[in-house]
């Protein structure tokens, strides 16, 4: 089972930031980042942390809800805000970097990025894409799910 972590503050964003990801998966469970239980983490084979809207930065105030990432050994994929969350928890610096639209066949929708990284991150069991692969690069999510 892949645990899909929802980061968006408003339910109306579920269809935009979570559903396009789960549409690419077969066996998954969606959970709000504030409600992840130990059981969820134990049962998950992999985890995907979804992105959220440009103006929705509420999760930055609740980064402690992601402290489980520090000792987590299974594969985790962070999309956009998800990549920023992984980086921040692992001690990397978040910097302002606004990018909206399609660049080199990748759909970007972000106000920040991670210092020292371009639009990808790979550290141990953690992977991150600053762009939204569910839009133009669906194969990246399928590869993560199957790999």
């Amino acid at each position: 089972m892949i645990l899909v972590v929802k980061v968006n503050e408003f339910e109306l964003h579920d269809d935009e930031f979570v559903k396009p990801v789960t549409d690419l998966l077969e066996n998954f469970k969606v959970v709000d980042y504030r409600e992840i239980s130990k059981k969820d983490l134990d049962e998950a084979e992999k985890i995907i942390i979804c992105g959220t809207a440009l103006k929705d930065n509420k999760y930055f105030e609740n980064l402690d809800k992601f402290s489980w990432l520090k000792n987590f050994k299974k594969p985790v994929l962070g999309i956009c805000a998800g990549m920023q969350i992984i980086a921040e928890v692992l001690g990397y610096k978040i910097i302002k970097n606004k990018k909206i639209g399609v660049f080199e066949n990748r759909y970007h929708l972000h106000s920040f990025s991670v210092e020292g990284f371009d639009d990808k991150l790979e550290i141990m069991n953690f992977k991150g894409y600053l762009f939204h692969p569910e839009v133009l690069n669906k194969e990246l999510i399928r590869e993560f799910a199957l790999g």
Binding site: H13, E16, K19, P20, A53, L54, K55, D56, K98
Partner: peptide
């Protein structure tokens, strides 16, 4: 929406 500092919702996105 970003320039006007408001939220943008696309509930049919990639459906």
């Amino acid at each position: 929406c970003d320039e006007l500092e408001i939220y943008c919702f696309n509930p049919l996105w990639l459906k």
